[in-house]
Design a protein around this nucleic acid. Structure first.
Lengths: 193, 193
DNA sequence: GTCGATTAGAGACGCATCGTCTCCAATCTG
DNA sequence: CAGATTGGAGACGATGCGTCTCTAATCGAC
């Protein structure tokens, strides 16, 4: 008779299982109905094991998101053209929204108002990079724009994502870029800095 | 011995009491910890009376908000100048945010994703009015701007309200108006919409 | 005014989930 | 091998949900 080791998981391996269980649960029942007991059951472990690692649902979900989706900053776009780059960034945000789900964003905002704002601020940096490359190509006079202008496209899109009832359409992205972002970039050039 | 009528409240009077109780509860414990039992207790009535009128917490809170705060559309600003009018609108939004509380907005978004979007769309109309009056004064060439541009200031502010950890500063409003909204309005004029 | 219809006031109920706690056994460390 | 750590499982009290039930106050029709 083969030795029936129970193969009890621990440490990192266990953590991985839990985060994947949380991610699956999120996809299946959504944030509002995700429960600690549900995740524990799916991961075949006890609640205590979850609470040992994360203080609450919000923290667990944030960890699961980090584990299962990459950062947009990882692969900056490079289409060789400012407009294409900006659109690419926005499209990636929309894609990410689809993966994560609107209800998760709403839920996290409600549950964890003191959430780390880092992941939001990072879009500013991505846009700064895009603009700098456009300036190097000579597409725009200078990348020295007001931070407000730099982040206007990503902020408008985030607003759209928060309040729209349907997935944000590509047409919306094009509007944001062509009617708001690019005109502002060019207007700034005209008036110096 | 005076007749001791119990003065049992009904109908509109009772409803008023409840909405005020909900509003007070909201101010005292916030949305996340507002409970139906709490509101009922404060209004000295039973839960059933609440559930007879509103299907859930979110609906009750929305009703309480409507009852206790006016609409921004009620008194359109008139400073005689486009910039002043837009700033006045944004300031009123901030004021309203202060009255209502960020956590209420987050909570409602999470609890009632199918919330009536009317109250949001209305800001677009307010801005349209402001722009039309500016056009009549001859301040701008035409009020026929892209809807995206018309609502850019209010949308950016709403984004700020959603994600900012502190009350939105007046400086932020000025930035939105001077660095984004007005440049866009003028740029549109140049290219003739 | 009397009388039925309505609905306020109060709270019990069953359910779900929270976050804590307890227990035993599997696994790791030395 | 022995002791320490941690996983697996679930009981526990607390809380609040939304429903239901019961009595009594009030209303409207006559």
């Amino acid at each position: 008779m083969p030795q029936q080791t129970n193969q009890r998981r621990r440490g990192a391996a266990l953590e991985e299982t839990i985060l994947e269980a949380a991610w699956a649960e999120l996809a299946e029942v959504g944030y509002a109905r995700l429960t600690m007991e549900g995740v524990a059951a799916r991961a075949r472990t006890g609640k205590q094991v979850l609470y040992r690692r994360w203080r609450n649902r919000a923290e667990l979900v944030v960890a699961a998101m980090r584990h299962s989706t990459g950062s947009i900053a990882d692969q900056p776009p490079d289409t060789g053209e400012l407009r294409g780059d900006v659109l690419a960034v926005l499209r990636r945000m929309v894609e990410r929204q689809r993966d994560i789900g609107q209800d998760v964003i709403h839920g996290l905002l409600a549950d964890a108002p003191d959430l780390d704002p880092g992941p939001f601020a990072i879009m500013s940096e991505v846009m700064t990079g895009v603009l700098e490359r456009a300036a190097q190509r000579g597409e725009i006079a200078s990348a020295r724009l007001s931070p407000r202008v730099v982040s206007v496209a990503t902020n408008l899109l985030r607003h759209e994502i928060m309040f729209a009832r349907h997935p944000v359409s590509d047409g919306t992205l094009v509007e944001i870029v062509d009617e708001v972002f690019l005109p502002l970039v060019h207007a700034s050039a005209r008036h110096g800095h």
